[in-house]
């Protein structure tokens, strides 16, 4: 009916006005006194007594707590997780990358945990400044040595720092994504709270049998 459309529209706006916000404050969220006390793990009274300066800040609305974004474990992120012990320097990943940004130099003479005698890596550089996180390199790796990471904050002032070297890869925190690695999903591994430092714990990627798939399907629905 003519004339009713506008009020109905405003009613929708009003409904949304009182709705809980969907916006996520990132990377920090402003909290009041109670939030700050909760973050410090104390009850508010204790917090006021123990940390008066912080309490005043919190009351003035200046206290912040860091916020973790909700991500799926399959998130194809930055910070590749790499297990050198498993890598045979086969260079499948380098060949499969659409941009050709993985550089591998290898020499013979390594005894591999899985494959016996194999090649040893001298250089394993990923230029993640150009990487588009498509995950094809991870999909290509036959030995489950390379995994996608789950983080995404890696800004630098210099482009060259975006080339991740072998040492950096080895030293990085190992929070592999379950992208193309169903073994993590089966173990309900959560990269946002756990790490896998030893490659023995990472498991190998084997295709589940059709029976297993059927069972999983029935359980889920």
């Amino acid at each position: 009916m003519i004339g009713l459309g506008l009020p109905r529209g405003f009613l929708v706006t009003l409904k949304n006005f009182v709705r809980a916000p969907v916006t996520v404050q990132y990377p920090d969220r402003h909290v009041g006194l109670f939030g700050a006390a909760k973050e410090a793990g104390m009850n508010p009274f204790r917090f006021v007594v123990k940390r008066p300066v912080d309490s005043i800040k919190a009351i003035a609305g200046l206290a912040t707590v860091p916020v973790a974004l909700e991500q799926s474990p399959r998130f194809r992120g930055n910070e590749f997780t790499f297990y050198e012990d498993r890598c045979t320097a086969c260079a499948s990943c380098a060949k499969y990358c659409p941009l050709g940004i993985i550089e591998i130099v290898s020499v013979p003479g390594k005894i591999d945990a899985q494959e016996g005698e194999s090649y040893k890596l001298e250089v394993f550089d990923i230029d993640i400044g150009r990487c588009m996180f498509c995950g094809l390199c991870v999909e290509a790796c036959p030995y489950d040595a390379l995994h996608m990471g789950t983080k995404f904050e890696r800004s630098t002032y210099v482009r060259d720092e975006l080339i991740v070297t072998l040492d950096e890869l080895n030293a990085a925190e190992k929070k592999p994504s379950s992208f193309y690695r169903p073994q993590f999903e089966e173990n309900a591994f959560d990269p946002y709270t756990e790490t896998v430092d030893d490659h023995y714990d990472a498991g190998r990627h084997e295709r589940p049998s059709d029976e297993d798939l059927k069972k999983k399907w029935v359980d889920e629905r």
């Binding site: 992208f179 309900a188 889920e220 629905r221």
Partner: peptide, 28 residues
Amino acid sequence: FEMLCGARITNSYLRPGGVFMDAPTGFW
């Protein structure tokens, strides 16, 4: 989409003959 393929816009979810990975637990 992030649950399905790990990315929101640059999905690259499909492969010749299907998709690269089954939907994860909880997707349905």
